[in-house]
Write a protein that binds this DNA or RNA. Structure first.
Lengths: 219, 219
DNA sequence: ATTAAAGTTTAGGTTTGCCTAAATAAATTT
DNA sequence: AAATTTATTTAGGCAAACCTAAACTTTAAT
């Protein structure tokens, strides 16, 4: 099997390339992985030798078909563990990531099959991100960015794009979670912020930055 | 924190020393850990520098108080995960160990607290071994080895001393699990084997080797 | 009490995954 | 188009955790 380090590189390449197709830069990877560019070059040579990536010196990397398969498996594990932590162990959004990051590297096909079953085959994780199927397929639902809603339009939060603790804690304070009912009360053209009512009660004003990170589906 | 390798050494020392008090040999450790004696010497120097063990060259190791604390924490994690795998994910006895061996190294206090709560604060694992408390205490129940029962005496399986897949599969075939009701039907003095009835029905003959590995409590 | 055998440690080497510093390639400016 | 800046790679090293082979202790046997 692959080492934890290899798996983390593959996951990072997958994420930076937005699904595996676009080429990813050495510096980008080094930032995501908190390592130096030289270390990335090192690892890319190794991953290339294992045919997990297409690597052309000085011109970035892409995942091979096999690399994508591996990436989706890791993401599946990560997201299933996140669902477990939130739904069964009552972790909050912002406590989940670090732990799931460790659990995703546990090697056992049976474990993941059984976990999936135990959780009732969930389709999205606590951040609203889709969970790849056992076959390695990612089925997306139609989502709109909160910033795109018109006045009076409603939506249910299905996803946030930023999983940094500070951001998740902010959303908790405001009262926004996956599943929260939102409605646009007013638009403030000055800075593109919106006044949003949360669960049909209190309303808050969200900056355009935040509005771009929250996704909703039809209620 | 400690590395996975360090944790495995500490666990092995704890087990071989029967709770931390007796000195353990380099060869013993190398066999348990499937490494060479030279590698063990290496690691013992490191663990000693971290004050996790008392190590006197050529005269074996013991865990320090801190080392014992660490050992019990790892064992607690391992056994809680085993309970989870068996009770929630319907793993069988013999599928559990390898996976728990990986999960026990996940670092998160909160995770273990919540897992313990989720499982209802279990006192023994699926092998009947006691689960150390959060405070690091091991409370034992009175147990007898199956080999020590007289004819007609009864017991409930609470523990087996061997967790090798082959042995656990053998017990599964025979129909013995934690919680199984046993009764001694007859003694065979020739080789110290016993005829045992299982759950008040079918009876089998167990060798003295096997009898030494199964523990029971009063029914 | 020697000597032989068994157990243990040291010395020196390997792989993995990282590092810094120097060299090289690509992109951007002028 | 040449020069400079930025990005990337190579070279050489380091720590962890393992290895083999050689040296050294301890134990057991004579």
């Amino acid at each position: 099997m692959h080492s934890t380090a290899e798996e983390n590189y593959i996951k990072a390449i997958y994420k930076l390339s937005g699904g595996g197709t676009n080429a990813v830069s050495t510096t980008g990877l080094s930032e995501t992985l908190q390592t130096k560019p030289a270390s990335v070059s090192d690892m890319l040579r190794k991953l290339s030798a294992k045919d997990l990536v297409h690597y052309v010196k000085y011109h970035g990397v892409q995942l091979t078909a096999e690399g994508q398969r591996v990436a989706l498996k890791i993401i599946r594990k990560h997201r299933l563990w996140e669902v477990f932590l939130v739904q069964k162990l009552h972790f909050t959004w912002d406590e989940v990531h670090e732990v799931a990051e460790q659990m995703e590297h546990v090697k056992s096909e049976l474990l993941i099959q059984r976990l999936d079953e135990f959780l009732g085959h969930p389709r999205i994780d606590p951040h609203g991100d889709p969970i790849p199927t056992e076959a390695g397929e990612l089925r997306e639902e139609e989502q709109r960015v909160l910033a795109s809603l018109a006045i009076e339009q409603k939506g249910v939060v299905c996803r946030v794009k930023d999983s940094q603790p500070a951001f998740l804690q902010y959303l908790n304070r405001v009262g926004i979670q996956i599943g929260t009912q939102l409605q646009v009360v007013d638009k403030i053209p000055y800075d593109n912020s919106l006044e949003i009512s949360i669960n049909k009660s209190k309303s808050v004003i969200l900056s355009s930055d935040v509005l771009e990170k929250i996704f909703v589906i039809n209620p």
